[in-house]
Amino acid sequence: MTVTADGDYTLPGFAGSAVTSLNVRVNDYAALLDLVRDQYYGRLVDVLDVRG
Rank of each mutant, 00 (worst) to 15 (best):
M1S: 14
M1F: 07
T2M: 15
T2L: 15
V3A: 06
V3K: 08
T4M: 12
T4E: 13
T4S: 15
T4Q: 13
T4I: 10
T4L: 11
T4W: 07
A5K: 15
A5Y: 07
A5Q: 14
G7R: 03
G7F: 02
G7E: 01
G7D: 01
G7K: 05
G7S: 08
G7Y: 02
Y9T: 02
Y9M: 07
Y9Q: 01
T10P: 00
T10L: 09
L11S: 12
P12C: 04
P12I: 03
G13K: 01
G13D: 01
G13H: 02
G13M: 00
G13T: 05
F14I: 11
F14D: 10
F14C: 10
A15F: 09
G16Y: 01
G16Q: 02
G16N: 01
S17V: 00
S17M: 04
S17K: 03
S17D: 01
A18L: 07
A18Y: 03
V19Q: 02
V19I: 06
T20W: 00
T20E: 06
S21T: 02
S21D: 05
S21L: 02
L22F: 05
L22D: 05
L22T: 10
N23D: 14
N23M: 14
V24L: 07
V24I: 12
V24K: 06
R25V: 03
V26E: 00
V26Q: 01
V26I: 09
V26T: 03
N27L: 05
N27K: 09
N27S: 13
N27C: 07
D28G: 06
D28E: 12
Y29F: 15
Y29P: 00
A30C: 08
A30K: 12
A30R: 09
A30I: 08
A31M: 09
A31V: 03
A31N: 10
L32E: 02
L32P: 00
L33E: 11
L33I: 07
L33G: 00
D34Y: 06
L35S: 08
L35K: 15
L35Y: 06
L35F: 02
L35V: 04
L35H: 07
L35A: 10
V36N: 12
V36R: 12
V36M: 14
V36E: 14
D38L: 11
D38G: 11
Q39I: 08
Q39G: 12
Y40W: 15
G42F: 03
G42K: 03
G42H: 04
G42M: 04
R43C: 04
R43D: 13
L44R: 07
L44K: 09
V45P: 00
V45T: 15
D46G: 13
D46S: 15
D46E: 15
V47Y: 05
L48P: 01
L48N: 10
L48D: 08
D49C: 06
V50L: 13
V50C: 05
G52C: 11
